[in-house]
Amino acid sequence: MVDITTLAATEAVTEAATEKGDKLSIGEAAVTAIFGYSVVFAGLLVLMIVLYCTGAYFKSKEAKQKADSAAEKTAAPAAAPAPAAAQKLAPGSAGHVKLFDVPDKEAAMIMAIVADKMQKPLNELHFISIKEVK
C-alpha cells in the first residue's frame, strides 16, 4: 500500500513549498504590519465617513417628513369647519354615508364585513363615512 521510496520525494516537495515564499527581515515585517494595520484603519475610517454622510441625508429626509406631517396635522383643525366640503365625494355616496375615494362596491363590501365581524344586522348600523387611508 505504501511506496516508501517516494516518501523522501514528498518531503522534498514540502520543503520546496515552504521555502517558496519570501523570507522577510524583522524590519520589513514591522513596516508591513504597521502599514497593513493603517490600511485597515484608513479603509474603515473612510467607510465610516461615507456612512455618516448617508445617515445624515436619511435623517434630514426623515426629519423633513416628520415636519411635513406635523404641519398637516396643525393645518387640519383650522380647516375643520369644511373638511368634507373640500373633499370631492366619490360616486355612489348615498343617504348619510359619504364615500371618499372608495368605489360603491368596495364600500358595500366593507359595510358587510363590519356587520359580520360585529355580529349585528346591517340595518342596525349607522355608517357616517368611508375613506381610503393612503
Binding site: 515552504t18 517558496k20 515564499g21 519570501d22 522577510l24 515585517a29 494595520y37 484603519f41
Partner: peptide, 24 residues
C-alpha cells in the same frame, strides 16, 4: 479596525519565528 491588531502582531511574530512572508 482596532480589533485587527492581532492579525498584524501575529504576522510579525510569525516572521520572528522563521516563517516566510506568505506563511506569516
Amino acid at each position: 479596525a482596532a480589533a485587527q491588531m492581532g492579525v498584524f502582531l501575529a504576522f510579525f511574530g510569525a516572521i520572528c519565528l522563521g516563517f516566510t512572508g506568505q506563511e506569516a
